[in-house]
């Protein structure tokens, strides 16, 4: 069975490599205008240059800083908010609906307001990321606590535990998978909105590179910016997935 897995992975990478090779060939043979498309090797060369000059690492660090700050804020607000929603069920139901409605709306389009209020800078980006991450964290925390199988709590009551013990040793462990998946969802949304706003407004980290490359007709920089943003997101999602499966197959 392991070999079947191996064949699939190989097929996947061969496909990706073939795609890149085709791109390389098409550009090298001058079948397309180099203003529109550039060769992966040229992008890689640009990437190397920008890594040596420190530009690319600085961009990544800026993006990661924004994501990290937004995530921290989103957790600090979202987790207690989710707990409060559970603790006060009447408000929980009311605000759960409001938050869900907000989350289903195109909140990313609010970024001009954040720009106006926080100014054109990292503040606006972090605020935007905070908003997009806080909602799923609060909602998942609420749902996780709310949907804990009551039988687990009954075990605690049956052992005559104190409320504090039940919350700490039964309620939270039981809700943990749901809360963690909320955190994962939160980070994913934060990353998407941070990079999107960086690109749209051309401030901050890796998202700005594609925008600059486009406006200055620097095709290598444009493709490097796109690849960088996409690869960063994928690495992030991959690591989060790994962390999650590590936590739950212990």
């Amino acid at each position: 069975m392991a070999s079947r897995r191996g064949r699939e992975t190989a097929a996947r990478w061969i496909f990706i490599a073939a795609l890149l090779a085709a791109l390389e060939g098409v550009v090298r043979l001058d079948w397309v205008d180099r203003i529109f498309v550039t060769a992966p090797s040229l992008v890689a060369a640009t990437a190397w240059e920008k890594i040596l000059s420190g530009e690319l690492p600085a961009l990544f660090v800026t993006t990661l800083f924004s994501v990290g700050a937004a995530f921290l804020l989103a957790m600090v607000v979202g987790l207690p908010a989710g707990y409060a929603l559970w603790r006060f069920p009447l408000f929980g139901r009311a605000y759960d609906e409001l938050l869900s409605a907000l989350f289903a709306s195109p909140w990313i389009l609010l970024y001009p307001i954040f720009l106006v209020i926080f100014g054109r800078g990292l503040g606006a980006i972090i605020a935007m990321g905070f908003l997009s991450g806080m909602i799923p964290i609060a909602l998942n925390t609420h749902h996780g606590l709310r949907d804990v199988n009551p039988i687990y709590l009954k075990v605690g009551t049956g052992m005559r535990l104190k409320e504090r013990q039940i919350v700490r040793h039964i309620l939270f462990p039981a809700a943990a998978p749901m809360i963690l998946s909320g955190l994962k969802l939160g980070v994913t949304y934060i990353l998407i909105s941070v990079i999107a706003v960086e690109f749209l407004v051309e401030i901050g980290g890796i998202g700005t590179l594609a925008s600059k490359g486009y406006f200055w007709f620097n095709t290598e920089e444009l493709y490097l910016g796109m690849a960088g943003a996409i690869v960063l997101s994928m690495i992030f999602i991959h690591l989060l997935g790994r962390a999650e499966s590590r936590l739950f197959t212990s």
Partner: peptide
């Protein structure tokens, strides 16, 4: 001591 009808051992 009580053992419940539903499955109640903690999965974590």
């Amino acid at each position: 001591g009580i053992i419940f009808q539903q499955e109640s051992i903690f999965p974590w």
